[in-house]
Simulated scan of single mutants.
Amino acid sequence: MSIRHGLLALLDQGPRYGYQLRSEFEARTGATWPLNVGQVYTTLGRLERDGLVAPHGEDDEGHVYYAATEQGRAELRHWFDTPVPRTNPPRDELAIKLAMAVTVPGVDVEAVVQGQRRHSMKALQDYTRLKGQAMTSGGQERSDLAWLLVLEQLIFQTEAEIRWLDHCETRLAQFRPEPEPAPPAEAAAPAVPPKTRRRVRF
């Protein structure tokens, strides 16, 4: 998630100070990626260092406002116009966990998959309920549309994760070692009749 460009997008609409930026960012994304004020001001400092934003006065309470510069607006337009690259996919903790689990002796990988599926199904139900609430609230603001788009992305992502977990179970079944056949029972040795003792007649 590009916090840097998200803040630039907000500042492109007018000067704001740190707490305003945090509140508006979370409102537009449904607090999916919560920010703290320290993170906002750290990012603002880097944007100012790079010439993308500049201080724009203070209010009566001492809040320092920031505004996007022309260079910042050009950077923002470039971000909007450039597809998000997939050459360096973000690290996925679940994929890493399963990759490690199949190589570590003693880990019940199927139990890991089933536990994650239960969690993902619960998350999908929660996202779907939130989408229903968003659709029936009648909100017509741009921020409502922004939240709905983020929510639907989470739904599609979770549905894909559940399908992938189903695939993992199938793949694990293919690699499950076949049970070794029981060794054949040894053939019983033929019974040897006891030797008959001959009677000696005198």
Rank of each mutant, 00 (worst) to 15 (best):
I3A: 14
I3P: 00
I3K: 09
I3H: 13
R4T: 15
H5K: 00
L7H: 04
L8R: 08
L8C: 02
A9H: 02
D12V: 02
G18W: 08
G18Q: 01
Q20L: 00
Q20I: 00
L21I: 12
R22L: 14
S23E: 09
E24S: 11
F25C: 05
E26G: 04
T32L: 11
W33L: 12
P34A: 01
L35S: 01
L35Q: 08
N36C: 15
N36E: 08
G38K: 13
Q39G: 11
Q39V: 12
V40D: 11
V40E: 11
Y41P: 03
Y41G: 03
L44I: 04
R46C: 10
E48N: 07
E48Q: 09
R49W: 03
G51L: 10
V53Y: 08
H56A: 13
E61D: 12
H63N: 15
H63I: 04
A67G: 11
Q71N: 13
G72D: 12
G72W: 13
R73G: 13
A74F: 14
L76I: 10
V84S: 08
P85S: 05
T87P: 05
P90W: 02
L98H: 00
A99H: 13
V104F: 06
D108Q: 07
Q116S: 05
R117M: 02
H119I: 00
Q125S: 08
Q125T: 02
T128Q: 01
L130E: 11
A134Y: 04
M135S: 14
S137E: 13
G138F: 08
S143T: 15
